[in-house]
Design a protein around this nucleic acid. Structure first.
Lengths: 211, 211
DNA sequence: GCATGATTGGAATGTCAATTCCAACTTGGG
DNA sequence: CCCAAGTTGGAATTGACATTCCAATCATGC
């Protein structure tokens, strides 16, 4: 009997140095594949081949496929947010907002507009079918929207943005424009829609500037 | 020889009255299932059960699953656009835009914010994996964006919107806001994000009003 | 250095999906 | 009424996939 594994699901096992590395390798391979083919379109054998591991390793570290999907969501969230820093933490000027959005547009162009948003795509696929995934996606979007809202709030506190501006709503609107713009760009294979969408929202934010 | 059936893939077969009805029933059942579970998450047996048909009927009318998916995309596009008329054809005032967007928000609330946009969800899932699906989705979004652009263009022609307004870009931005807002609302199970997103863009459009 | 638990390989299992086949039945035009 | 074509049922085929198992190997604290 030894370790009865307990109830619940979160068995916190000690990870060897190599174990941690294997675990990471699996997540990264899975994230890459799922970004291109979706979670449902990515099979365990696919991931095995890409990560160079055996099936038992995947099940050892993640329990089942859903567990791996959850880990991928968290990984993509962490990775995307980290990639956007420090810009993300300094969105307190119109120029900063434009620069930040522009980078994502260039990134999209660089990959030929294939693939949409790493988080948005998973969200669209999993929101209705996997309750625990949806929960993590809520948190993912919150972690993303937070810094936008904070930046706008700082502008407002400084008196640069009118009191009339609903900074929280504007932050949500900008995030939505990013998501919708990415989707249209992915379908059309042109970043134009993305750029027009974020540009419109940032122009709108700009209209609240106190001069 | 008469009708030589020709090359290509589109064998235009004569459909019996009953045949057309069966075909429709299959598409509708498939559309409903795919809306909730995605195209990849919906199996042929699922559709068989929902539509009350045998496998051979599905393959008889659509060739293979991809053929059915394409038919579902077209069906959802036609259905959604039809649902939005006549509002969709009269988006030539700020009030009309707000009313039209508001309806979609209420519709979203009515279903508890489960499921996103019928077209957007398919787009996110299929854009990168099915070239012919992507092509149809491009056309679907174009058919949707067109009436928005036309409405704005009419406002501009009438002199109600400033010459400075890029009506095509604004139409794209609004469509993106709808898509992104729907996605956030689906994940958060609240239509607030959708309403804030479209409201921001319409406010922006409003700023081009000539008074 | 040894015991214990972590890690790994690889085969086995059971399920289910996509698609094909073929035979039977129906329909509509001539 | 009759034939060719449209329509349907249901079984059979093939392959993939998620998951499990067991036995072997490796790492580490004591």
């Amino acid at each position: 009997m030894s370790a009865p594994v307990k109830a619940g699901e979160s068995k916190r096992q000690r990870l060897t140095k190599g174990g941690r590395k294997t675990r990471e390798r699996i997540i990264e391979a899975a994230a890459e594949l799922m970004f291109h083919r979706g979670a449902g379109g990515t099979s365990i054998p696919d991931i095995q081949a890409a990560a160079g591991v055996s099936a038992s390793q995947i099940y050892h570290y993640f329990g089942d496929k859903q567990g791996l999907v959850l880990a991928v969501i968290d990984h993509q969230t962490d990775t995307r947010l980290a990639q956007q820093r420090p810009l993300l933490d300094n969105l307190d000027s119109i120029e900063a907002l434009r620069e930040w959005c522009d980078r994502a547009g260039n990134r999209q162009d660089a990959r030929g507009c294939e693939g949409g948003c790493e988080i948005g795509s998973l969200a669209s696929e999993l929101a209705d079918s996997d309750q625990s995934a949806r929960t993590r996606l809520v948190s993912a979007f919150d972690r993303w929207e937070g810094p936008i809202r904070s930046g706008l709030a700082r502008m407002q506190e400084r008196g640069e943005l009118s009191e009339r501006a609903d900074t929280a709503a504007l932050a949500t609107a900008l995030l939505a424009a990013i998501q919708g713009g990415m989707l249209l760009s992915q379908v059309r294979r042109s970043s134009t829609a993305y750029r027009q969408a974020v540009s419109a929202v940032i122009d709108h934010i700009e209209s609240y500037l106190v001069r």
